[in-house]
Design a protein around this nucleic acid. Structure first.
Lengths: 208, 208
DNA sequence: CACTATAGCGGACTCCAGTCCGCTTTTGTC
DNA sequence: GACAAAAGCGGACTGGAGTCCGCTATAGTG
């Protein structure tokens, strides 16, 4: 199962204790993730109840919740592998996404990367956030992105007033809800959305 | 005088209730709204269940839902009066919020107005959106704001590429979730948030 | 005032997320 | 291998959102 990943912590949020996983726990975790993917494929993300998942996986609800905490986290877990890969690419990957390119180029590459990621996965994130309730800003991924953009913007512009605000403003359109609105309700192509974000980014970069 | 808003109709969030309201319906609507306000005051917005509201108001749940559709709409209804007043001020109020001032000034005034409104009411909107699920972009209020900002930006800059995208990007930080994040999690004052938005707005205006 | 069509009403009901707690399996230790 | 502690397990249970449908009050008409 390519989407099954060990329960590591997200980078730089935790020193990662990583205890050994019991065999039955591992088996059930895999079953649950597979069952979730199967169910989403069969009935759609909105009609998939947690009871369904437990039944499909052949485990009890208690097990499901012990593992994944809530619906939101379960859906996140489904995409944790590509999410991790993207974060790695930001830190260790090739330029311009990774280190080596000038900060403004990296910033543009970052936005494009997030939007491409959203194109594949926004539906899961959005569905998770819907019932999770305001998860976005509290999620470690947001903190990670924020640090990254803050750093790049600082490198590009130096100390500027409203630095922090502009970081959030740049990240705003890179979240699932606005993306899905633009793509599905406004009918924009991913290229158009990317181009729009580049324009926003340029505006902010020019401002400094 | 290109910045004067032509007298065409902008979409309003609450199309006039053309039909006469039955006496019992009116009585119950008032009871429900009062009960909701009382309950929020007493137990807090998150602990207030719809059953509680119905019981406190002395009506059945059916009545509650017939009236207000869902929890999200009930919470919206609580602030519909000031919301309406703000929208009126945008169309018919004094400059710079209303017509008469140059578009860039009106844009700045709009942002400040929304943020001030959010400072009082974001909690209700956010609580509603949490269980409503992605209501923001589908809500008539968003369409109204969108039209308004689009018009002002168009007057200020003329036809520019990515016009629509930038409108959404400007509106992004003016929604409840980012606002509450900035105010309550990041500990920013409303003044700082306003100043940040002005900077964003200036960046976009300078870009054209 | 009597009549009737219809808007309004209420609460039992369904469905689902998330919790609780007693039972089972695993793992480390001797 | 025996044992105890710890980790894992499962499904009954709770509580709340939103629906359904038969009953009731209202307002318009003669």
């Amino acid at each position: 199962m390519s989407h099954v990943v060990p329960p590591f912590e997200l980078p730089m949020s935790d020193p990662a204790p990583v205890e050994r996983e019991r065999a039955d726990a591992r088996r059930n975790r895999e079953r649950i993730l597979c069952a979730t993917a199967r169910l989403i494929d069969r009935v759609g993300i909105d009609c998939m109840s947690m009871d369904d998942v437990a039944a499909e996986a052949g485990v009890g609800k208690g097990t499901l919740y012990r593992r994944f905490g809530d619906r939101s986290s379960l859906l996140r877990a489904l995409i944790s592998e590509p999410e991790q890969a993207f974060q790695d690419a930001l830190i260790r990957g090739d330029a311009p996404l990774g280190p080596g390119a000038p900060p403004d180029e990296r910033l543009h590459a970052f936005g494009e990367g997030v939007l491409t990621f959203l194109d594949s996965h926004a539906v899961y994130i959005q569905a998770g956030e819907r019932l999770g309730g305001g998860k976005r800003y509290g999620h470690p991924v947001y903190a990670f992105y924020r640090t990254h953009v803050s750093l790049l913007l600082g490198q590009a512009l130096g100390e500027t007033p409203h630095h922090d605000y502009l970081v959030d403003a740049l990240l705003g359109p890179l979240s699932a809800e606005p993306f899905l609105y633009q793509r599905d309700l406004r009918g924009m192509s991913v290229e158009e959305i990317c181009a729009g974000w580049h324009a926003l980014c340029d505006a902010v970069l020019a401002q400094g």
